[in-house]
Design a protein around this nucleic acid. Structure first.
Lengths: 303, 303
DNA sequence: ATAATAGTGTCTTTCAGACAGTATAGT
DNA sequence: ACTATACTGTCTGAAAGACACTATTAT
């Protein structure tokens, strides 16, 4: 860096020694969500839906036997998105998944091995459900039903601002396996300075700090659901409007009024001539996604 | 990773060799925006405002003499946000800046020295303008007036989706120094798969791929302006509603109707007993930010 | 008085929310 | 006939957009 006038850029690059400084490792971690149908209670009732998240059982240290998000180290010759796609292909048989960068986590102590900076991604699979690759000798993958509830909210006003602390209880279940965690989100305003921190308070069965990546990603998924067309990545090619509404309701964890929902999504959807059949009630028209909608897919990356 | 049963986690960690794999470097790059007043034309007219961005002149290779975003390598013992704050303090005298993570850039060839993954941040300074540190021997910092215009938009419909290409012309000026770039954003939908790429087509005087970080960050700033209270970080402690409106207009690059603007922001603002004076016209009431507003600062990170 | 900005009132349109009603398959 | 879902019509109130109007200071 010093005495730059004495070197051309080409000389500088030729003599550059990348080994001079110690560096963090860089990984990608991917939140793969899907909405799946639970077995139906009765021949008439529509099946319930639930939100699922793909987790991988760790086959090595650290956190041996705990469950982690799919992901891994970024190689020197691949971009970040590329690495995320590669990791996805290593775990699943799906090729065409939605993928979007979420947030980058780089706290100092978050991996016991060494300093790790982790770029998290959001991925969505259609409710047909993608198939998982047969587990290698040392690892195992599974879809976990996600439930995340706000269990506490505390706002304390200080003289110069406030602190808003929200406590979330995350539960992941897959058959007899149950994982859980308590994650706190703390938003502070002090004068002009704001900060937002996520902290894992308890974590049972979930590796690393992945519980907070999950809770944070879930909030983002909910947010984006309301102002983008992201939901269609969770749908099969053809679907009924009720199915679409169920996907919204499942993720938002709240009921919506049918008439209003249909009005709002009418311009993002095109009807087909097909109908469902063999349900215990009136058949329902099938629709396809129609992207042109209103054109206002809002800006940028990351959101 | 192999034969995990033979080792405890403690043993594994003790023997872990972080030097085994080659790793990327990790940097932070910060977009520091502010809105500044241009010198007034007449004693009566209100001064015009313009959006400014902090840039640093490179004092070493690579890109010697070009202008880059403030930033630098993340140290092994500091978190990402911490690194961003440290870099900001190294360049400016401001302590209390708004800081928010934006996006992480990790294309393979983006730095000629070595593989660099760069976490970009958005920072806002109030229009009082923060003072810059005296330049070191080898570098120089300055506020550049930002202008970014959409110069082309092309949508091509394919059989299975579409491609939307938008071309932006970015101009940065500071006195006689003028930098410019052409940045393309390409959004593709093919069946279920979507992708979004940013590409720098031309870049005059701007180091690395920073032109695209700037254009992408600017889009995010515009987006967030409309649905968060982010704008108040650009305001001094007390301000008039017209000043606040000017900040919105400057960033959005479009005029707003006064009555509607005031109605919309009424609940985020508290009046004081003070007024401006010595303007060539009716004095204006001064306001303060009132956070409680509607409480709906929407979710998560990044976003 | 005048120029320039400060600030208010109100009309219209759009849209979200709520809810009541009709339609139609399968058993 | 009955059940469960499919689908539509319409009322209300809130908010966005547009615009016209009044108020107040320094020169």
């Amino acid at each position: 860096m010093r005495r730059p006038g004495e070197q051309t850029e080409a000389q500088f690059l030729a003599e550059y020694d990348p080994g001079k400084y110690e560096r963090p490792s860089v990984t990608v971690d991917i939140l793969v969500f899907t909405v799946a149908e639970e077995p139906a209670d009765s021949y008439r009732r529509l099946p319930e839906k639930s939100l699922k998240l793909l987790m991988i059982k760790r086959g090595g240290h650290p956190f041996l036997g705990k469950w982690a998000l799919p992901g891994g180290f970024v190689r020197m010759d691949e971009g970040l998105d590329e690495a995320a796609y590669r990791e996805l292909r290593e775990e699943t048989n799906a090729k065409e998944l939605y993928l979007e960068q979420l947030y980058t986590w780089g706290d100092v102590g978050r991996d016991p091995r060494t300093r790790v900076v982790s770029v998290s991604y959001l991925s969505l699979a259609d409710s047909g459900g993608i198939s998982l690759k047969a587990g290698d000798d040392s690892c195992d993958a599974g879809w976990f039903t996600v439930s995340c509830r706000l269990t506490g909210e505390r706002k304390s006003i200080t003289e110069d601002g406030y602190t808003l602390t929200r406590t979330h209880r995350l539960r992941l279940t897959n058959g007899q396996t149950a994982l859980s965690a308590v994650v706190e989100s703390e938003r502070t305003l002090e004068g002009r300075r704001t900060s937002h921190r996520w902290e894992v308070r308890e974590s049972e069965g979930i590796a690393f700090d992945h519980a907070k990546l999950i809770v944070c990603g879930l909030e983002r998924l909910r947010g984006k659901l309301e102002y983008t067309d992201i939901a269609f990545h969770l749908m099969p090619e053809r679907f009924t409007l009720t199915q679409l509404q169920q996907v919204y309701e499942t993720i938002l964890d709240r009921e919506l009024l049918k008439a209003n929902f249909r009005r709002k999504l009418a311009d993002r959807v095109r009807e087909t001539n097909e109908f469902t059949k063999d349900a215990g009630h009136r058949p329902s028209k099938l629709y396809r996604y129609h992207p042109g909608g209103d054109g206002t897919e809002p800006w940028g990356e990351g959101e």
